[in-house]
Amino acid sequence: MRHYLQFGRFGFNLQGTQALVMGILNITPDSFSDAGQYQHLEFAISRAEQMIVDGADIIDIGGESSRPGAPPLPLQDELARVMPVLYALRDCGKPLSVDTYKPEVMREAILAGADMINDINGFRAPGAIEAVRDSDCALCIMHMQSVPQTMQDQPQYEDVVREVIDFLRARIDTMTAAGIARERLCIDPGFGFGKTVEQNYALLRATRQLRSELGLPVLAGLSRKSMIGAVTGRPVEQRLAGSVAGALAAVAQGAEIIRVHDVAETADALKVWRMAH
């Protein structure tokens, strides 16, 4: 199944095993995986440049941690973290994504040249759709039950796959009704965002179902998450092999964008996997 996805200044024809690698650039002091490593502008730029060399197709810039239990970040603090990095990288030759749920950050990021807005809240905040509607950037709609502060307390579903699909379909309908072209949209089931380990893997197995029922590219973000640790028994800093396996499993199930910390290893694994298919 082929789908064209508009990324602001860029566009991709997504098909089969030709998954895009999205490199994670956390410029936060409290990320669950690489806390504080890329807070300083020069380190963030160097990290992004290395990810591009390693094979990243997209750079995803995040200024606020969304790990379970993370407190909300004031608007001005998020802008102060994200905007200098975005301005510094906007001519890097790759699409730049901004990971935010705040409409004010979305507006500023789009003005600065962001090619994608990646919203863990599915553009549900008041003003979020209006903030992105008149741009041409890609929009990733993610499912999350509850909020980061409480999402992992006791996530409950009657049927996690059906409920996530229904949520995403409703958000797609709302956004297209607002005048946003489907070619700008992709979807993310939200691994680790209000799901148990079993629910995460049920969604991973259902990736192709999400893709076929909703007709949009699927972004999968499993990298270093607790769903990897629960299976391998490894702490977060030792989840490389499990994360690469998860990325390959997601692509095998139909995901077309893989959001990862370990770009070089994932890109290499995908090259080999493609040759075998």
Rank of each mutant, 00 (worst) to 15 (best):
A206Q: 08
Q199P: 08
G179C: 10
L168G: 10
V218P: 00
P189S: 08
G190M: 06
D159I: 05
Q156S: 14
Y201M: 12
Y201A: 04
S212A: 13
L219A: 03
I172S: 04
T196A: 06
F193M: 09
S223E: 07
V218E: 03
Q199N: 04
Q209F: 01
D188T: 09
R224P: 11
G179W: 05
L168P: 06
R171E: 15
I187M: 05
G221K: 06
D173Q: 15
F193R: 06
R169D: 14
L210V: 13
A170V: 08
R205S: 13
D159L: 04
I172F: 05
R205G: 10
I180D: 10
L219D: 03
V160I: 14
A181R: 07
A170C: 12
L185G: 06
L204Y: 08
R182Q: 15
V197P: 04
R171P: 10
V218Y: 00
V161S: 05
G190P: 10
L204D: 05
L219V: 14
E213C: 09
K195Q: 05
R162F: 02
F167C: 11
R205L: 08
I172P: 05
L222Q: 13
A178V: 09
V218N: 00
L210Q: 10
V160E: 02
E213W: 05
F191N: 00
G194T: 07
L216T: 12
G190T: 05
E213M: 01
V164P: 01
A178S: 14
F191H: 13
G192Q: 10
R184C: 14
D159Q: 10
Q156C: 05
D166L: 08
L210R: 02
L203K: 03
A220G: 01
R169T: 00
F191E: 07
A206G: 02
L210M: 12
C186E: 03
L210H: 07
L203T: 08
T174Y: 02
P189M: 12
R169K: 13
D173W: 01
V218I: 15
R205I: 03
V164Q: 04
S212I: 13
T174A: 15
R171C: 07
R205D: 15
I165M: 11
K195C: 09
G192K: 06
L222F: 14
I165K: 10
A202C: 01
A181H: 11
R171D: 06
R224E: 11
A170G: 10
G221C: 10
V164K: 00
P155F: 03
G215R: 08
F193V: 14
I172V: 15
R205K: 13
E183S: 15
N200Y: 02
N200L: 07
E213F: 06
L204K: 01
R208K: 14
R162V: 09
L214V: 10
A178F: 07
E183I: 08
Y201T: 07
A178E: 05
P217T: 11
G192F: 09
D188Y: 02
A220K: 07
V164G: 03
L210W: 11
M175Y: 04
F191C: 02
R169M: 04
L168K: 08
E213G: 00
E163T: 04
G179Q: 06
T207D: 03
R162Q: 14
Q199I: 09
V161K: 10
F193G: 09
V218M: 00
R208N: 15
A220E: 09
R208G: 13
I165V: 07
R184W: 02
I172T: 06
G215Y: 07
N200R: 01
I180G: 02
G179H: 09
F167L: 11
